[in-house]
């Protein structure tokens, strides 16, 4: 296998003729049923796609979801129309496979709501906040420049109650629209919005303990 060539095929977001050519060759070989092309697909994209599945699932389920997704991709390659990058197409398949596994686990939403409640803002009877806290002085760029902050953000997102974490991952990390997220999770668009807002507020509260002025 040509690792130098294949690793370049998942590279920068900027248009790159070599990358496009690599992807076209890979897809053509896959559509021709070439097992070597499938192995190339698994080795080149599998690692990153496993990272995606791990955001939703524990290690064992993530590996199973990845396997289901990649087998499904192999079997449905004829439906890939080449309008998106291979990585984008695979990403969607992996997210869907991960969500199907999550649904099978049938998490109790009520428990998740209870777990999130302490992280939401509290209000006085007149509608003012009971716990205003202080502002954050650093910019997002400054915050992300600190490795411990990046690690904290990732850890905090993954620690959110499952139903909230999934909505936040789908909307803010995986880039699905509200409608797409609603369809993927079998929720209404407004329910997605409520969960996303609560998840962001909870994440803000967790981060505030570390990032607010004087924290």
């Amino acid at each position: 296998m040509d690792s130098a060539r294949t690793s370049s095929s998942v590279g920068p977001a900027q248009p790159d003729l070599a990358v496009l050519s690599d992807e076209q060759t890979l897809v053509a070989d896959l559509k021709a049923g070439d097992p070597a092309a499938y192995e190339r697909l698994v080795r080149v994209y599998g690692g990153r796609m496993l990272q995606v599945a791990r955001r939703f699932l524990d290690e064992e389920d993530a590996r199973d979801a990845l396997q289901e997704a990649l087998v499904s991709a192999w079997k449905s390659i004829d439906r890939f129309d080449g309008q998106s990058k291979v990585s984008t197409w695979l990403h969607r398949i992996v997210v869907n496979a991960s969500l199907m596994r999550l649904r099978k686990k049938n998490t109790k939403i009520e428990k998740a709501t209870e777990a999130l409640e302490p992280l939401l803002p509290k209000y006085l009877e007149d509608g003012h906040r009971a716990d205003p806290g202080s502002g954050w002085t650093e910019t997002p760029e400054q915050l992300l420049g600190r490795q411990e902050v990046r690690a904290l953000v990732r850890r905090s997102i993954l620690d959110l109650p499952e139903s909230y974490r999934t909505v936040l991952l789908l909307r803010d990390i995986e880039g699905l629209s509200g409608k797409e997220t609603a369809e993927a999770m079998d929720l209404t668009v407004s329910a997605v919005k409520v969960r996303l807002h609560r998840a962001r507020q909870a994440l803000r509260e967790i981060l505030a303990d570390h990032l607010a002025e004087g924290a």
């Binding site: 997002p140 992300l144 994440l203």
Partner: peptide
């Protein structure tokens, strides 16, 4: 800022 760092962290 929470949304921005969340989107960028992964």
């Amino acid at each position: 800022k929470t949304v921005a760092v969340g989107k960028a962290a992964f």
